[in-house]
Design a protein around this nucleic acid. Structure first.
Lengths: 125, 125, 125, 125
DNA sequence: GTGGTCTAGACCACG
DNA sequence: GTGGTCTAGACCACC
């Protein structure tokens, strides 16, 4: 993980793990690695990881089984809903930002097509 | 201004002022309001505003005339370049994020069209 | 059993078993199921159940016959006394808490009557 | 503050502060003492206090003004709602517990009256 | 070994 | 000085 110094690490962890779950890299109902292991894996302090996981639990994406570990929710609807909200948020934010530097909707779409045509594919950020 | 508590204010100010300049709300060569006034206007501490303006100056979007105040650059190319970089960065970031939750390029474009069809317009974020 | 994650399980087991005895679901002098079976029944670890039973034994509600198992006390007075203490404790605690959010005694009693009137019965917690 | 060792301190802090707000000891819109001062006052670690305050903020009972401090919500409705939920929860829990040791509703109310008659007032817990 | 809590102490952004 | 974040490390309940 490369962390952006301007954003709290635990928030970046939340985003990262949320994506892993949405993408199914952590499957529905699957047990997550232990807090300590996740912390080691992503090279953060266990408390920081804990804080991120509490946030994911608040969002119902994971739940805790006492002394057994943490599991991805078994409710596919929650995951789908979060995925949809996320997509909508990203898209609205993108259009908002593009408009705020002077693009209108048609221009945005043209811009995307042009980028695609030039690159074959949109370059990864 | 509504600030996101998770990102330093001065960075959000940089983004905001950059957009104002790109959009021409602060025109080429125009004198900016005083640091003090800008701070009052956006309800931030003058120190914070000062920090943001230094960053804009580093990016050559504004320059300082000693004792006279700060001015928007007179070099239109710089502004255009920053606008283009910004658009490219926003678009790449958007595609990167959408892909990271499982959309491919075609699906992203379909998603945008669908949103547009439903809303008439993309809702402001 | 649904356990409250914020209170040690063995304490919740003590409360639960105490109630069962007070209610006579485990009768005076009756032999309790084995620790192992009780643990299975309530889906806790046998060690945890053992700890709860030790506490009940300290309170003289049960006693152990070596190699034979654990029995509910044969002294009805102990059970009655614990029931009365419990009722008093619950009631005092309830009044204390209600007062600590601004109800006086009259208001508490009015509140109870009102709830009863609305529900027919007080809803199970 | 006397803390119950069997319940996490931060939860007891949440309960305590919630009551103070409901009772109006911290008034609507009033600025709370700083996190550090509250921690000193109640003799807990600042991080523990911080955790409690985050929970209160999640419940919308307080809000944070960047660098200025934390304030009691200005929305009286939220406070009233929390007070009512709290009273209902306490009452339901009380009746549930009393029933679980063999009292029916009439007996509970008789019991309260009897306690009142004997004590003049219900003894503080 | 698992998650959860707590303390101590440092550092940062902002005013 | 304010809140917020992070690390390090200890201890606890439970399995």
């Amino acid at each position: 993980m490369n962390f952006d110094n301007n954003i709290p690490i635990y928030i970046q962890l939340v985003e990262y793990l949320k994506k892993e779950i949405i993408l199914g890299k952590f499957k529905i109902g699957e047990r997550l690695p232990s807090v300590r292991d996740l912390a080691l894996l992503l090279k953060v302090n266990p408390n920081t990881m804990q804080k991120a996981l509490i946030e994911l639990e608040n969002q119902k994406l994971i739940y805790t089984e006492r002394t057994n570990g943490k599991y991805v929710t078994e409710d596919k609807k929650i995951i789908d809903k979060i995925k949809n909200n996320y997509a909508k948020e990203l898209t609205n934010k993108y259009f908002f930002n593009m408009k705020s530097i002077g693009f209108n909707e048609k221009e945005i779409i043209d811009y995307i097509k042009e980028l695609e045509a030039n690159n074959g594919t949109i370059r990864m950020y």
